[in-house]
Amino acid sequence: MNILNIITGNVARGPQTVRFPGREAPAAAYRGSVTMDAAKCLACGICDYVCVSRAIAVTPGAASCEWTYDPGRCTYCGRCVDHCPVAAVTQAGDRGDSYARSGAQRATVTVPYPACPQCGRPAMPYNEAVLGAAFGDVSAELRERIHLCERCRRRATTAALKANFGAAAETGRSDDGR
């Protein structure tokens, strides 16, 4: 009569279920919907690369980068959070809202590119630590140049190349990098 033990236990303890719409709070480590901090983002696109369901799309533009996230496609696997080199991507600790239409909750974050310290045009953001992780030892010169825009970087490279020719560069001509 072991089943009677279970039944009397259940009757004595009272119901264990929760009345709708009540629900238990999620665990502290709960993996909820993904948010992104544009101030930290490097627009590297790793989150896009590891996303299995294409919930995250990173579309680089001329002056800014569009980071799009659709919770309706997300599998909440947390790989984007694990792989983000600068911890710009985080997951909410609770369950998201329900939705009726596909794509209804799609959110877009615009990551503006910082201004080039030389010319002021938008430059792709970079981060030294990430650069080091990707390419190993970073030379002092490279470290200086990562903040430049593409145009200024090319110009600096040309200038450095010309400097190698020594006096040949001292022609007095104004150098616009071409």
Binding site: A27, A29, R31, G78
Partner: peptide, 29 residues
């Protein structure tokens, strides 16, 4: 059904553990 509920009640304990470890009840990643 009574035993079904007893089994699922026990299962709920281990599901809570898995959620606490991984952050999800089914896909632990």
């Amino acid at each position: 059904e009574t035993l079904f509920m007893a089994c699922f009640g026990l299962r709920e304990k281990i599901m809570d553990v898995l959620e606490a470890i991984s952050g999800n009840r089914v896909n632990y990643a």
